[in-house]
Simulated scan of single mutants.
Amino acid sequence: MAGSARISERLAKRPHRYLIALGSNMRHARLGSPRAVIAAALEELGRAGITVLAAAPVIASAPLGPSRRRYANSAALIATALPPECLLERLQHIEGAYGRRRRGQRWGARVLDLDVVLWSAGAWASRPLTIPHPRYRERTFVLAPATRIAPRWRDPVTGFTVRQLYARLTRSNPLP
Score class of each variant (00 low, 15 high):
residue 122 G to F: 05
residue 55 A to Y: 02
residue 63 P to W: 03
residue 145 P to C: 05
residue 148 R to P: 08
residue 157 V to T: 15
residue 97 A to E: 11
residue 98 Y to F: 14
residue 135 R to N: 09
residue 69 R to D: 15
residue 121 A to W: 10
residue 118 L to C: 04
residue 17 R to L: 09
residue 63 P to G: 03
residue 138 E to A: 04
residue 137 R to K: 10
residue 135 R to L: 13
residue 127 R to I: 05
residue 145 P to Q: 05
residue 162 V to I: 15
residue 33 S to M: 02
residue 172 S to Q: 14
residue 111 V to I: 15
residue 122 G to L: 04
residue 60 A to H: 10
residue 78 I to Q: 13
residue 154 R to E: 02
residue 171 R to T: 08
residue 1 M to G: 15
residue 56 A to D: 13
residue 162 V to T: 13
residue 135 R to P: 04
residue 114 L to P: 00
residue 174 P to W: 13
residue 71 Y to A: 03
residue 116 V to A: 04
residue 141 F to R: 00
residue 156 P to L: 10
residue 55 A to H: 02
residue 144 A to S: 09
residue 75 A to S: 10
residue 41 A to D: 06
residue 162 V to S: 05
residue 170 T to A: 04
residue 133 H to R: 12
residue 109 A to Y: 02
residue 27 R to W: 15
residue 65 G to I: 03
residue 90 R to F: 07
residue 2 A to I: 01
residue 80 T to H: 06
residue 82 L to Q: 11
residue 40 A to M: 01
residue 3 G to S: 13
residue 65 G to R: 07
residue 27 R to C: 12
residue 67 S to I: 14
residue 92 Q to C: 12
residue 134 P to G: 05
residue 45 L to R: 02
residue 115 D to W: 00
residue 13 K to I: 10
residue 136 Y to N: 15
residue 61 S to L: 14
residue 50 I to P: 01
residue 20 I to E: 10
residue 24 S to K: 04
residue 56 A to I: 01
residue 144 A to V: 01
residue 137 R to A: 14
residue 126 S to I: 03
residue 37 V to A: 04
residue 127 R to Q: 12
residue 77 L to H: 06
residue 97 A to Q: 14
residue 128 P to C: 02
residue 38 I to R: 12
residue 86 C to V: 14
residue 66 P to F: 04
residue 164 Q to A: 14
residue 14 R to G: 00
residue 70 R to W: 14
residue 2 A to W: 08
